[in-house]
Amino acid sequence: MKKFTALISIFLIFFICGCANREYSKVEFLMDTVVEIKVYHNNKAEAQEAIDSSMEEMRRVEQKMSSFFPGSEVFRINKEALLEEKKGPLSAEQWIPVSNELFSLLKESVHLSQLTRGTFDITIYPLWKIWKFKGENPEVPGKGEIERVLKFVNYGGMILKDGKISFAKKGMGIDLGGIAKGYAVDAAVKILKKKNIKSAMVNAGGDMYVLGRKQGRLWRIGIRHPRREGEILGTIEVEDEAIVTSGDYERFFFSGGKRYHHIINPKTGYPADECQSVTIVAKEAAFADGLATGIFVLGPKKGMALIENLEGVEGVIVNKEGDVSTSSGLVSKIKYVN
C-alpha cells in the first residue's frame, strides 16, 4: 500500500509541476524580421512583464545599432566620419566617442574578424550601401564602383581606443548587420534571467537562444534545408545555447538571370558562393551570429576547421554542392531528416 501511495504521489507531483509552468509568448516585427519571445513560467503577470521588458530591450538595441536608423549611435558615427571626410582626411586625432555598450560590441567584432581572417567585417558598410539590399530596388553595382569602395573595407583600418573610434581612411564606416541581431537576442535573454525566468526562447527570425529546458526536456530546434523551402535538414536538442544560421536563401534578388544574395564577401565585394548555409551553436548569440556570417564567406573547409578549434562552439555547414558537414561535438546531438 505504501508503495502504491508513493507512486501516486510521484505521479501527482509530476503532473502538478508539468502544469504549473504555462507558456506565454509574444510576436513583434523588429530588426527587419519577426521576433518571438516564449516564456514558461508559473506566474502570468511576471511572465508577461518579463516578455515586454525583453522586447523593449531588443527595440532599444535596434535603435542604437542600426546603420539605417537616423538617430542611432552607429548612424551618428558613420555620419561624423563622413563629415570629417569633407574637411579632409580623417587623422588619428579625430576620434569619435562611443558608448561603453557599443564599444564592447565593436571589440567583439574585431575579435570575430581576427578569427575569420577578415571574412566577417563590420567595415563592410560602404559595400552594403552600394548593393542597396535594404532598399526597394537592390541592384548589382558596377565593377568599377565595387573596386573603388573595396579600398574602404578593412577592419584593420577601424581604430578603437579608450572608448573612441577612428578610421584610417576617409570613406569608411560600420554596419553591425552581421552581429546586431544576435546581440539583441543576448540582451533580451539577460533581461529574462534578471526577471527570474528559467525557461524561455528568444527567436529573432531564426536566430535564437534557448534558456533552460522546455518543460523538463531539451529544446528541439530544426535547421532549415537550404534548398527545400519549408523543410528541415535535421534537428538538434539543446539547452542554454544560441543557434544562428546564415543562408543564401534569406534575402536575394535576380539581375540578368543571375541570383544575388545578401552575404557579401568583404574581400571581393560580391556575394560569397562557397556555402548554402552555416549554422552555429554557441553560448552567445552575438558571437554565433558573426561567426555564421564569417564562416559562410570563409568556406566549408576552413570554416569547419575554425569551429573545431573553438571551445564551446559547434556547427553544421552545407557547402555549395549541398554536402553537409557536422562538427564533432554535434554528431551525437543531431538527427538528420534522411
Partner: peptide, 20 residues
C-alpha cells in the same frame, strides 16, 4: 504589411523552432 500567417494543427510542430 506586418502580416503573419501560421499553420496550426493536430500534429503540432515536430520542432520547437527552426533556425534559418
Amino acid at each position: 504589411n506586418k502580416v503573419l500567417v501560421t499553420i496550426e494543427g493536430k500534429e503540432g510542430p515536430k520542432v520547437d523552432a527552426v533556425s534559418y
